[in-house]
Design a protein around this nucleic acid. Structure first.
Length: 925
RNA sequence: GCCCGAGUGGCGGAAUGGUAGACGCAGCGGAUUCAAAAUCCGCCGCCCUUGCGGGUGUGAGAGUUCGACUCUCUCCUCGGGCACCA
């Protein structure tokens, strides 16, 4: 046997697996199914380390479950619609579909060498008409069931991508993909009625017992349930069409502290007033412009305009407060109107201070005196006693709330109400590369659903990207059609669906990707739900919430069984793959002459220079404004002209990839890393998520070519817990590679060992066999537990331990061979190729995949004597070997009679002795 | 601002009320080698001690307990989520 050559061995086994169709999943009612799914990739063109980690985790689970006897479904597909394909089309003069399918081909070829146990016969891309046609069919069913509707709505408009974004896709006022500042526009849009399920989606989060708490909490917060009351106020001096104002509040207990009311600039009353009053009109216009930049959003001042209308207090006939239009009130939450109680709400307080409105506290903190309690610049939002509030005085907040709600209800001016932060899901996108919304605009019949027989509504094969905007809208050939209802000339809907729709049901489609309906009952009944779903935490809200909604909608439209309302039984969110970054600070400099010492700290003499200049060096000048690193490295560089200094005019950070840097040959130069091309020292930055922009990427393909898939798989699973970020290091991957070699060498060594060893004492041999059996049992236990708990790093630690143990064992050859077989089976989920190779070397002709997971032999774990730690006053002093099944009093006696204990206690009688059998003994003095 | 989570050797981490530092990486010493690589053996928290051994130690401080990395409270630092949601 020779060195383990992954490049030969891995493809060999992959071919054998394929020949035998080992991973093809078929319904078998006699076996228990297990559906493991990793979030499918976007076909960007190359796989990255994040994929390697994600798919290795899924593969470990899939292979483990297979060997546990489950009928495993482990599919793969492509989340293939979306903007990058259109951008590529624009930049490279190609078509989105060509670009996408080419990328899929490349990425499939890149995934294949990883040796994943995937049923590739189920593969599909969401841009396949066979997939999105079924999506359109479901859309029609959902339209029919009232789960889809169209409305005129203020939407987030991304001016760069020229499309609408969902609220969830706007991050800090910018488009999640383009980064462009989002504008508000009013457009006619398609919506999924996700908010209809707000309560249910919220409530059933608690039943997701195998989801990370973190994700559940994020979903809960996102849905954002609040309970309160809707109050109707009478207005005075208002237009007759708007004599009443509805306001939503969660703090009706503070109603006696009301000092103004406010409505959103988009409120119908505001719009009405704007028609008559230019000041109001201008104010509203300025509000729409405001809040466009990120800074404006953060520091936006509370502004308002007095409408001249007064609001009557429902419980205090003498009280009337002004009605403002205010920029901080959202139209799409509650009623778009509020009552302001400045003492107990920071926003209201800011507003009141600005406009000189009354601030009267109505809740007094317990430790304060109600007569002297004053609100300064911070609103009081804590608990306390109600004051200045008529019949509510002296009550606590909860009591006051229920009293006032009952009272307002009795007066018929209030209705208890629950509100949610979650809005309906706007899915219209003005893009080409997405699933067409299958409806037709007929000038006679209005909006008419396409007939199911005519599905899929296919995208035109090519699109024109020479102009901005939606190519579908310009493609009259495609757009023109006849009304399915009356046959008259009409136009297709040119909006396509948000790509999150595509990924909201792909897991269900995998159960039968060839079905002529979205799903079929037999397949979903058998394969659903996803038993283990694995992906990035970045999808904690959007994708996972949409999928939960879709599963419900699919149940209502009879595409999924009742049991699939929560489609993902267990969820695991893996951490990112990180790498340290390498950068140089590249400067534009102006040279100035002067008498300066090298290394001297100087102040920039040019007024344009913003920062204090630290040092500088040499003709072509390296100036670094982060001096620590520069200085350490300073010795290496000789300054030729000490009169030349540089003044920083501007600087940019330039990033370098790991391939571009190396360590200096001798550490005498400096510790750290340098650029290979010119020896310049680089600044080593924190380890952060691998990203193209920071260039801190390691290409999985290079790694697999160099070390093999098993090494890469082993490395990404070792060391770091899977839910945490893992740092990719050269030393780490080398270590993994050495271990693979070591296991293979161990296999060779054991097999080439002679059948020995007559010299060995029979009793000694017996002890070695027992030790090996015990180690085997402990390893099986540890690895099984590790995989079951998603603690792959611990499973791997056990395998390291066992390998080391086995390589030092003096047990006879036949026992070692048996142990080696166990090692191979236990390693199979992580390093399947190596496992197969060992299994074959041991003389087996069948694949190791058919080998079932070993069981722990508990009998060998029981020992007659156990080592038990002895503590004196809670501090461990030494260990004592005692017979396993002694009773507590027997242990006590044994310990008290022990010489060491006697000397440590100096003969004093212990106050107490605590015995935890099998664990510890604590002697308390 | 609000809500979560995490802080353990030089590094990744293990131990979730009972022996702190499993396992890996890096480092150090040795064997092998003409030499190197590879491999193998040993050491490896910190302080004192030639050694035996002792002390100390899980972000800081208090508390609960026979016993705390683990539970409670306060604080510090880092990471994440949400952010005019009335």
């Amino acid at each position: 046997m020779s060195k383990y050559n992954a490049n030969e061995i891995e493809p060999k086994w992959q071919e054998k697996w394929n020949e035998q169709n080992l991973f093809k999943a078929t319904i078998d009612e006699s076996k228990q199914k297990y559906y493991v799914l990793e979030m499918f990739p976007y076909p960007s063109g190359r796989i990255h380390m994040g994929h390697v980690r994600n798919y290795t985790m899924g593969d470990v689970v899939a292979r483990y479950k297979m060997s546990k006897g489950f009928n495993v479904l482990h599919p793969m597909g492509w989340d293939a619609f979306g903007m990058p394909a259109e951008n590529a089309a624009m930049e490279q003069n190609t078509q989105p579909s060509d670009w996408t399918y080419k990328n899929i081909k490349i990425m499939r070829a890149q995934l294949q060498p990883m040796g994943l146990s995937i049923d590739w016969t189920r593969e599909f891309a969401t841009c396949d008409p066979t997939y999105y046609g079924q999506q359109q069919a479901m859309f029609l069913d959902m339209l029919n069931s009232g789960l889809v509707y169209r409305k005129n709505a203020l939407v987030n408009w991304d001016p760069v991508d020229m499309t609408v974004l969902a609220n969830e896709q706007v991050e800090e006022g910018r488009g999640w993909r383009s980064g462009a500042v989002v504008e508000r526009r009013e457009l006619n849009q398609w919506f999924f009625n996700i908010s209809k399920f707000s309560d249910e989606l919220l409530a059933s989060v608690d039943n997701l017992s195998h989801w990370p708490e973190k994700v559940k909490l994020m979903q809960k917060n996102w849905i954002g349930k609040s309970t309160g009351i809707e109050i109707t106020f009478q207005l005075r001096n208002a237009p007759t069409t708007h004599s009443k104002l509805k306001v939503y509040t969660t703090r009706p207990d503070t109603i006696f502290g009301m000092s103004f009311c406010g409505i959103s600039p988009n409120h119908p009353l505001a719009k009405y007033l704007a028609k008559k009053n230019n000041l109001i009109k201008n104010f509203i216009t300025s509000c729409e412009k405001l809040g466009n930049t990120e800074e404006a959003l953060e520091t936006a001042e509370k502004k308002g305009i007095d409408t001249g209308i007064t609001v009557l207090h429902p419980l205090d006939k003498n009280k009337a407060v002004p009605l403002y239009i205010a920029n901080f009130i959202l139209m799409d939450y509650g009623t778009g109107a509020i009552f302001g109680c400045p003492a107990h709400d920071q926003r209201d307080l800011d507003f009141a201070r600005k406009y000189g409105l009354e601030v009267m506290p109505v809740v007094c903190p317990v430790e304060e005196d109600e007569n002297s309690f004053k609100i300064l610049d911070r609103a009081f939002t804590g608990v306390g006693t109600v004051i200045n509030s008529d019949f509510l005085n002296g009550k606590n907040i909860a009591e006051a709330k229920s009293l006032i709600i009952a009272h307002l209800e009795e007066l018929k001016v209030g209705t208890p109400k629950v509100n949610f932060r979650l809005r309906d899901w706007g899915i219209s996108r003005q893009r080409y590369w997405g699933c067409p919304i299958p409806v037709i605009h007929c000038h006679k019949c209005g909006i008419v659903p396409e007939k199911k027989n005519n599905l899929p509504v296919k995208l035109p094969a090519t699109a024109d990207f020479s102009k901005p905007g939606n190519p579908l809208d310009r493609d009259l050939n495609w757009k023109r059609t006849t009304c399915p209802n009356c046959g008259s000339e009409s136009m297709r809907e040119t909006d396509t669906m948000d790509t999150f729709v595509d990924s909201s049901w792909y897991f269900a489609r995998f159960t039968n990707p060839n079905s002529l309906t979205p799903t079929d009952k037999k397949s979903t009944d058998y394969w659903m739900n996803v038993d283990q779903y694995i992906g990035g935490v970045e999808h904690a809200i959007l994708h996972l919430l949409y999928s939960r909604f879709f599963a419900r909608a699919m149940h209502i439209t009879q595409h999924l069984p009742m049991k699939s309302k929560e489609p993902f039984t267990a969820l695991f969110t893996q951490g990112m793959v990180c790498h340290e970054t390498y950068s140089c600070f590249k400067l534009t400099v102006r040279t100035v002459t002067g008498n300066f010492e090298i290394g001297q700290e100087i102040i920039g003499t040019e007024s344009k220079a913003k920062s204090t200049i630290k040092f500088l060096i040499q003709d072509d000048i390296i100036v670094i404004n982060k001096p620590k690193k520069a200085f350490k490295n300073g010795e290496k560089i000789t300054v030729t002209n000490s009169k030349t200094i540089a003044v920083i005019l501007s600087g940019t950070t330039e990033w370098f990839s790991p391939e571009e840097v190396s360590s200096p040959k001798s550490e005498e130069y400096f510790k750290g890393k340098m650029l290979i091309k010119n020896g310049a020292p680089v600044e080593i930055g924190n380890s952060i998520k691998m990203s193209k922009s920071k260039k801190n990427v390691v290409d999985p393909i290079d790694i697999i070519e160099q070390y093999g898939a098993d090494t890469a798989r082993w490395f990404v699973m070792s060391d770091s817990p899977p839910d945490r970020d893992v740092e990719w290091t050269e030393a780490g991957i080398d270590g993994a590679w050495r271990h693979i070699q070591k296991v293979w060498k161990l296999c060779s060594d054991i097999l080439s060992q002679k059948e020995i060893d007559s010299k060995v004492d029979p009793e000694g041999e017996n002890i070695n066999v027992m030790k090996l059996k015990k180690a085997t049992a402990l390893t099986i236990k540890g690895v099984t537990q590790g995989i079951e708990d998603f603690a792959f790093n611990k499973a791997i630690a056990k395998l390291y331990e066992f390998t080391n143990f086995l390589s030092k064992s003096y047990a006879p050859r036949k026992n070692k061979i048996e142990a080696l077989g166990h090692l191979a089976v236990l390693m199979q989920p992580m390093t399947p190729h190596l496992a197969e190779e060992i299994w074959a070397a041991l003389g087996n002709s069948d694949t190791i995949m058919h080998q079932s997971w070993p069981k722990v032999d508990e009998t060998v774990l029981l020992e007659d004597n156990i080592e038990i730690p002895i503590q004196i006053n809670g501090k461990k002093k030494f260990e004592l070997s005692i017979p396993r099944d002694l009773s507590i009093p027997e242990i006590e006696n044994l310990v008290l009679e022990d010489k060491k204990v006697f000397s440590l206690t100096e003969g004093n009688k212990p106050k107490r002795i605590i015995v935890i059998p099998g664990r510890i003994v604590n002697v308390v003095l």
